[in-house]
Write a protein that binds this DNA or RNA. Sequence first.
DNA 1: CTGTTAGCGCTTTCAT
DNA 2: ATGAAAGCGCTAACAG
Lengths: 338, 338
Amino acid sequence: MAQESTTRRPTIRMVAERAGVSAATVSYVLSGRPGAQASGVREDTEVRVRSAAEELGYVPNSSARAVRTGRTGTILLSLTMLSDPWSLSIVRAVSRAGAGAGLTPLIAADTDWRPLIHKVQTDAIFIDAPAKGQEDLFASLAAAGHNLIVLHPEMEPAGFDVVRSEEYAGCKLLADRLLDQFSTVGLLAPRGLDPTNLGRRASAYVDALEARGLSVRPEWCPPTGDDETSAFQAALDLLRSPDRPRAVMATSEFIAQAALGAAAVLGLRPGVDIGIAGVGNAFDDRTGGVGLTSVGPEGFFEAVADLIVGRATGTDTSPRRAHAFAWQVFDRETTLGI
Amino acid sequence: MAQESTTRRPTIRMVAERAGVSAATVSYVLSGRPGAQASGVREDTEVRVRSAAEELGYVPNSSARAVRTGRTGTILLSLTMLSDPWSLSIVRAVSRAGAGAGLTPLIAADTDWRPLIHKVQTDAIFIDAPAKGQEDLFASLAAAGHNLIVLHPEMEPAGFDVVRSEEYAGCKLLADRLLDQFSTVGLLAPRGLDPTNLGRRASAYVDALEARGLSVRPEWCPPTGDDETSAFQAALDLLRSPDRPRAVMATSEFIAQAALGAAAVLGLRPGVDIGIAGVGNAFDDRTGGVGLTSVGPEGFFEAVADLIVGRATGTDTSPRRAHAFAWQVFDRETTLGI
DNA sequence: CTGTTAGCGCTTTCAT
DNA sequence: ATGAAAGCGCTAACAG
């Protein structure tokens, strides 16, 4: 903590002095641990210590404590796209799961996590979008004692956990469902059909079409980009066209929201005038607004949160491994009519 | 960092041993600081040290460093309602402002910040929704050397900074603007017109109406609650009514988004069939979807970010004080037609 | 240019 | 029931 030159942060020793006890006793009292081999601290000493601490405005130095104990009671969640409902669902699930164990999630939003782990010490680190080729780095961090949980469809666990969700299979499922219900289906994906960069989710869409002998219409698959503005624009352009598809499949809930917004502006009622479906199923415990038809792994957030918390506490000592989650379609209003 | 029993995290001494130098030298190399009074470290030593660190997968213990230096390079942002665009704007602004000084924001989402400051050490703490009656706590934390910046309309600075924004005056401005443009204006506020809990923003609406001799119609001011679902429902109910107002004023951007969603479902075009305005003006640098008419302090996020960063680095040594921001109305598509 | 030394604030045996 | 002392991993004077 950066300090005023005039103000000094009170230490445990100052509290001890004021209470007329030793630093050790203060530590026992304030951390609620039984002192040494005996059962506890005498009532009146405890009271003296507590009021001395209060009077001085003493806040224990968490860094010093962490140096000794090796634990911090925090979990680092490195999340790109904090505005995505998916991210908020992760945060909420980890908060809930960690509360019992006294663990609090700290969020790093859309930042490179490498400099961060040089700055903050946490009991576990979750990374939602590891870059390609960072396997070795992860492995060495894991070997150095870090509790790493990464979300990645292909990376192999090597001392760290890998959370996998079957996005390709899931998205294929969704595309098929949409094609069953709607005569024509468009795609809203960050890079559209860009062949040099066709994501798993977009591939599933393409494959579903081709399996039915339908041809892919590029004008129905505009790239949305990665930010809200461009996603909204792309959706608007697509839905505004007189020749628009009957439904669109958005490759993230974030893009689905942009599509909902675009439909709103155009006066198209989701589920009535236009079918809209997203990928991720982050709404199941949030249900923001109209129910968005989506595909995703059931119980995903809770399971991932439990994993992270188990690793952070040290309760879960099973070997680090890959955790796969199967996806299913959740039909909601945006494809059913309201 | 919780560790495997088998794996031990490498220390600076292990690196030193492997490189055949002292711990101090390793410290100099890795923190990029010039050693003692001389200009630097010899080239070859530096190389040896770096590769030794690499091979061991050494990551410096940030807690130990923080104990020594008293600084962490992080800023704690305690934010309620992370889904609100306002919060995301704060995060983005602080990220940007802190990047140059090597400061990274860490976000605590919708959590009590008190246990947190016992767990993490940061160079500054921003609190967006301090509870009533915490003034004394803040003052004592400040006295104990914490860099506190709180957002509050009335709290008086006492060793900590208070960021104020003139919400009442601003909301009055917005309500007046809407009443100039639309014959009837409804209100979407968390607790509606609840007299026991009438917020500043809702009061401004009421006062604006009364100043014009207009009567407040309770059925146009349903409580939205604090979560997206209920906000959406409330908006839907209001806008669905045949007797709905021509425009609605939402007391946050988050509620405004719910209103936009409700309008979407009903096929009402914002700015054409229904006027919608929000409070906060967080969209100015995000422009998600349709341009939302809003009221808010101009340059707010940048100014607050600069304040936080200045306090965190210690650059800004001016006395802690209240920082007021005047609001203005930003007319955009949702009240103008698209 | 590098090593030695002395702590930072805290927890935790081990005595008493 | 409490205190003395050692040491976590690191940095910062100072010595050489």
